[in-house]
Design a protein around this nucleic acid. Structure first.
Length: 223
DNA sequence: ACCCAGGGTCATA
DNA sequence: TATGACCATGGG
């Protein structure tokens, strides 16, 4: 407690990886399923997303044209378990329309192939329902682009460890973390997945444990 | 009966 | 540019 060593991002990564092991993200069977999951998991527990994706699969609706050919109301019903189902039905359709416009409806994993990831990111951000985190999740986990995904857990954990300022934009957080870690596909993939894993288990908005058992180098982090 | 979840949009100031 | 309301189900 008295002389707690300074935790930096590389140490966070090492400790989490040592404890949880490789996360092997994203939990999906195809790039398109990653994209769908990225929309559905917005402010929603992954458990509920799984139920909705299972419903889509059971309805043979886990494909671009299948979704676009369905009535939006019917799509929404399949999405009920994921919450915000009317909103997400509209967002999924917008994403699918975008994939058609980009000519990758039959093979969404080809989106942005041979294109600058920064340019593709801008295009994704214009799609209704795709914000910065969703765009980056798609870039990283569906398209293998080396970008850093910043989510609520990243901010919360980073701030409690004193690694991020209270007020920081999405881009500022990306830069702050990227300045300390190797910016490559494998590390970026693992880091976000590990932070989510830690967040799920130990990092509620209102902290309940006084000492995080995994990041015990920082006793006050979760007080 | 709360609290929370792997955000984003839109109206308003 | 920065808040706040709104979207909704399922688990702890």
């Amino acid at each position: 407690m008295a002389d707690s060593p300074v935790i930096r991002w590389p140490l966070v990564y090492e400790r989490l990886h040592a404890h949880f092991g490789a996360q092997d993200w994203w939990p999906a069977q195809s790039p398109f399923e990653v994209m769908v999951g990225a929309i559905l998991t917005q402010n929603t527990a992954w458990r509920n997303v799984e139920l909705a994706i299972a419903a889509l699969r059971a309805a043979d609706a886990l494909a671009v044209f299948a979704i676009l050919h369905m009535a939006e109301g019917d799509l929404a019903q399949l999405l009920r378990p994921a919450g915000y189902f009317r909103v997400k039905a509209k967002r999924l359709r917008a994403l699918c329309a975008f994939l058609v416009a980009q000519g990758v409806a039959e093979d969404p994993g080809q989106l942005g192939r041979g294109q600058d990831p920064a340019v593709l990111r801008q295009d994704l951000l214009r799609v209704h329902g795709v914000g910065e985190e969703t765009a980056d999740a798609i870039l990283l986990y569906a398209l293998d682009a080396p970008v850093l995904v910043v989510d609520a857990y990243t901010r919360r954990i980073g701030k409690r460890l004193g690694l991020l300022p209270e007020k920081a934009s999405y881009g500022e957080i990306q830069s702050a973390i990227a300045a300390e870690i190797p910016v490559n596909l494998a590390v970026l993939n693992e880091l976000h997945a590990l932070l989510v894993q830690l967040g799920k288990e130990h990092c509620r908005p209102r902290p309940r444990c006084e000492l995080c058992p995994l990041l015990s180098l920082c006793p006050h982090a979760y007080a």
